[in-house]
């Protein structure tokens, strides 16, 4: 259940090929974007709720180091404790140590059916639903638990599960129960269109929703909270070319305090701290002269 493909492959192509074997690569933000574009913009996708971040789903790669040499990194099997985990270290290193040329993706079974819904309601009701779901064993089976916060609109919870035909009724029942218990209104929905965010913030689970609310309240646009991962994906309004640097620094600091960070095209440039600079220089000098 693995697929090797060039980093320039679009996710839609990946899943078209995988689908022929009743398989899928679930970590998709924008099907029209390539794997390389995903890796540069995000570390998590909605389906990370169930399958973890990209680093847990990219098993290996052919990696081109800056000197031009191609090196095989990682594995073609789904489990490894062989040597230092360069694969996870390099995957989101933003070109500092080279670039992925080909990737080995871990595929998952395609259930064949999709159950999707939106839960709407007042903020406390949405929070009840979100918290209840995160603490429920159902969380292991639900692909998407996203809080969608859009300027000028009430926030809502978007839930989706890929499942077998025989499971649809169980998911429908659970979503109805969740809605009733939390006091939210349930709506059926098609898949929501997403595009790659300009900014991604990684923090603790409870800090992500307020961070998303703050971003949208102050700057407009849309923020999506990947609730199980503690991640906020921010899509700015069309007329916002960039968030002010102090804002980006402040947002990042809020994440750093919890051992998180910011990521993506708008993430403020971060220089290596003194100690880190020495480690990075050691790696660069070794890897540039292979």
């Amino acid at each position: 259940m693995v697929m090797c493909c060039p980093a320039g492959t679009r996710l839609a192509e990946v899943n078209a090929l995988a689908g022929e074997q009743q398989l899928r690569f679930p970590l998709v933000v924008d099907p029209a974007a390539t794997l390389a574009e995903h890796l540069a913009a995000v570390e998590y996708a909605s389906a990370s709720a169930r399958f973890g971040p990209f680093v847990d789903n990219v098993l290996g790669m052919n990696w081109r180091v800056p000197c031009g040499r191609l090196v095989r990194i990682g594995e073609r099997v789904i489990k490894s404790a062989t040597g230092y985990d360069l694969n996870k270290f390099l995957l989101h290193s933003d070109g500092r140590y080279g670039n992925a040329v080909d990737l080995v993706l871990r595929l998952r079974r395609r259930g064949g059916e999709a159950v999707r819904c939106i839960l709407r309601g007042a903020h406390p009701a949405i929070e009840r639903a979100r918290i209840s779901l995160l603490r429920s064993p159902w969380i292991h089976w639900i692909d998407v638990v996203d809080l969608v916060v859009t300027a000028g609109e009430p926030a809502f919870l978007y839930l989706a599960a890929d499942c077998g035909r025989g499971d649809v009724a169980a998911f429908d029942d659970y979503f109805r129960q969740l809605s009733a218990a939390s006091g939210t209104q349930l709506e059926a929905t098609e898949a929501l269109d997403y595009s790659l965010p300009k900014l991604s913030l990684k923090t603790v689970i409870t800090a992500a929703p307020p961070l998303a609310g703050e971003l949208v309240r102050e700057h407009g646009g849309q923020a999506r909270v990947l609730c199980a991962s503690g991640v906020v994906h921010y899509l700015p309004p069309r007329n916002l070319p960039l968030l002010p640097e102090p804002t980006l620094r402040r947002l990042e600091l809020q994440c750093l305090e919890q051992g998180g960070h910011s990521y993506g095209p708008w993430s403020p440039r971060r220089d290596a701290v003194a100690q880190e600079s020495a480690w990075a220089t050691t790696l660069e000098s070794a890897w540039n002269h292979l």
Binding site: H92, A207, G259, G260, H261, A272, E276, A280
Partner: peptide, 10 residues
């Protein structure tokens, strides 16, 4: 949070 904290790399 499971991120990088103050460091640039993971």
């Amino acid at each position: 949070a499971g991120g990088r904290g103050p460091y640039r790399d993971d």
